[in-house]
Simulated scan of single mutants.
Amino acid sequence: MRIIVVSQAEKNLLEIARLLRERSTADEIDVVAGTLARLQEPRGAAVLLLHQATLDSADLEQLEVLSSRNPAMAIVLVCQPQPAEFLLRAMRSGVREVLAAPLDPSQLHAAMRRIEDKLSASNRSLGKVLAFISCKGGSGATFLGTNLGYALATQENKRVALLDLNLQFGDASLFVSDRKPLATLSHVAQQIHRLDASFLAASMVQVCPNFHVLAAPDDPAQANDVKPEHAEQLLQLARLHYDFVLLDIGRSLDAVSVRALDHADMIFPILQLTLPYIRDGKRLLGLFRSLDYSRDKIHLIVNRYAASGEIRLSDCEEAFGSPMYKTVPNHYEAAAASVNQGVPILQLARTSPVSRALLEMARTLVGDNAEESRSWLSRMLKRA
């Protein structure tokens, strides 16, 4: 990106340019010695960085004019510590970041990262959020969510994040990795002020280059550290940087999981073809109706399906009044070995019917995502 640095002090000008070039050799750095009056129209600039010890009303008015003419340009101001009233006026004039002089290189780099993230967001479609929730304990929701994430990442070449929102008893990372998490969701929540793409990635278990898992808290007591607003911030950031964001909700619903479900594009209740699962599944769907979730957001999946079972698939569909989205065959030996070893079933038993079902579901989801993108583009072209 193109960055214009303006400063009356040549020493400061050269030092800031050096710091910016050290941060990224891909950026184009232009320097202007003097005040804003020396600056020509900054067309094409992504960032205007003004280093000026003090500013008056005329300077702020000029910044406001520059901001209105170049709405996509981020203005960063480096100045001596100022009172809150001045900072508010600066923000109203279009200033995106205010950094204290003398300049701390780490603060400069962090500000540039935040600006890059926002620029990337404006040029990138948001990732799809998929939530997996058990109709009853032992349904296999965690197994399906984690292994589907692996299939999307390795077979469809998508960037995938999985957030373990089973705050008290979550163990999603253990299903696909033997690595001990360096951080958990509660650690991220405790430092939510640091949240950016780099901090999030560093807090996750890397299952493979395209698949990252943010583990649930180690101690059930740490579940209280995670608030609904934390889940919302995490989702907003994650869907900017991943094609798919998977949520392992767990068995119970609380304020955090409901806030996350509000942002989900698709919710997958997982059940099996037994009466207790069907009964609890109907209760869960009733709860979703009370939350005003639309029917096309809910997609039922039957796990451990066997055509020879006492309850037929058609009976289940009649009970719910809707078709099942997918069925995953019963292959207990392969699934149990995968869980016990912490290895994705696609690695361990690629020819298993469970693996084939997960691959087919991944292809369906990627196809649906591509179709939505094409539909959106078609609508835009028709308007043009």
Rank of each mutant, 00 (worst) to 15 (best):
V6H: 01
S7Q: 00
L13D: 03
I16T: 13
L19Y: 08
L20W: 03
L20T: 14
D30W: 08
L39P: 00
P42F: 00
H51M: 01
Q52F: 01
A53H: 04
L55D: 09
S57V: 13
D59P: 04
L66I: 14
L77E: 10
C79I: 10
P83Y: 03
A90R: 07
M91V: 14
R92A: 03
R96F: 10
L99M: 13
P102T: 07
Q107A: 15
R113W: 05
N123T: 14
S134I: 03
S134E: 10
G137P: 10
G138K: 13
S139L: 00
G149H: 10
L152Y: 07
A161M: 14
L185G: 04
R194Y: 11
D196S: 02
D196G: 02
A202F: 00
S203L: 00
C208I: 09
H212V: 08
L214F: 12
A215Q: 09
P217N: 03
P220C: 10
E229R: 12
L235A: 04
V245F: 03
D248H: 06
I249C: 01
I249N: 04
L253Q: 11
D254S: 08
R259F: 08
L261M: 14
Q272C: 14
T274Q: 15
L275D: 06
I278G: 05
L285F: 08
L287N: 02
R289Q: 15
D292A: 14
Y293Q: 07
I301E: 03
I301H: 03
I301T: 04
V302H: 05
A307G: 14
A307I: 07
R312A: 15
R312N: 12
F320Q: 02
N330S: 13
E333R: 12
Q347K: 14
L348D: 03
S352R: 07
P353Q: 02
P353T: 09
G367E: 06
G367I: 08
N369S: 11
L377G: 01
